[in-house]
Design a protein around this nucleic acid. Structure first.
Length: 288
DNA sequence: AAGGGTGGCAACCGCCGGTGA
DNA sequence: TTCACCGGCGGTTGCCACCCT
């Protein structure tokens, strides 16, 4: 048996709020607050509405200092960063944006911001139609994206290619030159500064373990970062992997595309970033 | 001018966790 | 410890305005 409904559905009004209802609710809230609880409020305020509906109307529209209208670039950046770090925890994201409601941010993300970000990716790398914002789907998306890129990478002309990153904790990142942002430990990425790197959702814990992987040399990298660094060789024929940023100098491990593919197909992979730098095709692989 | 499609957004639904009796 | 209640949350729906053909 399910939970009892919070109100008598048959006797409550639904749909858009009228100015009169807004005025009643506003006046009541300013005088008495919720007067105990939201469920009882409509009756006390003389409203034929569900308590939850009143709460929503107040929180999302009537309460003071609500900000409506265009989101600033700074707000965009905060939303993107937090979404990539914590996912669709809209209330937490809203807490970082004074005057914005979780509903507003959710709508903004779903209708505009997501598309704005996706629009940065050239059409030849279009995401599959199945693209969803759920972390699990993003993991799949990341694999698809990487797979497509690997198949075509060698024939690509230099282009402002953004990078997609996803790790086991189900966060993802997009790398472009248009939204430069370096997370918590910017010094981690000093070596990448010239390469249009943007990382969402990265954290020290997710890329600092020292477990060994077969035939991949690993060392403790300063500042908690471990990874592989790759790029095409001189003849542009073979994709080479290197140890990343040991003493700021890549160390050639002599790995080729087959290893890259192997790493990608390995579910234990932590993440993979394709990066584009001044016409060179590069890749950074993160592991945990 | 009309009607079908699309986007934006307010509101609803149902689940979950906290709390107090 | 259990259970009911309530608030909060995220996903989804549905309406309306605008655009395109």
């Amino acid at each position: 048996m399910g939970r009892a409904p919070c109100c008598d559905k048959a006797n409550v009004k639904k749909g858009p709020w009228s100015p009169e209802e807004d005025a009643k609710l506003k006046e009541f809230m300013e005088k008495y607050g919720t007067a105990g609880n939201w469920i009882a409020l409509p009756q006390k305020a003389g409203l034929k509405r569900c308590g939850k509906s009143c709460r929503l109307r107040w929180l999302n529209y009537l309460r003071p200092n609500i900000k409506h209208g265009e989101f600033s670039d700074e707000e965009d950046r905060i939303i993107c960063t937090l979404f990539a770090s914590i996912g669709s925890r809209w209330s937490i994201i809203a807490a970082q944006l004074p005057g914005r409601t979780d509903n507003d941010i959710k709508n903004y993300w779903n209708t505009k911001l997501k598309k704005k970000l996706m629009g940065l990716i050239p059409s030849k790398y279009s995401f599959p139609n199945t693209f969803q914002t759920q972390p699990h789907s993003l993991s799949n998306l990341y694999r698809d994206f990487n797979s497509i890129y690997l198949q075509t990478a060698k024939s690509l002309e230099p282009a402002p290619l953004p990078s997609l990153y996803c790790n086991n904790s189900d966060t993802f990142s997009l790398t472009t030159s248009q939204y430069p942002y370096f997370p918590q430990n910017q010094e981690l990425y000093n070596g990448m500064e010239s390469s249009n790197m943007l990382m969402f959702g990265g954290n020290e814990a997710s890329c600092s373990s020292s477990d060994s992987k077969d035939h991949v040399k690993q060392e403790e990298i300063p500042c908690g970062f471990q990874g592989l660094y790759g790029g095409f060789d001189q003849g542009n024929q073979k994709f080479m992997l290197h140890e990343a940023f040991v003493d700021q100098k890549p160390v050639n491990l002599g790995c080729d595309m087959e290893l890259v593919k192997q790493l990608i197909s390995n579910d234990n992979s932590s993440g993979l970033v394709f990066n584009h730098d001044e016409g060179k095709r590069e890749m950074v692989y993160y592991y945990s």
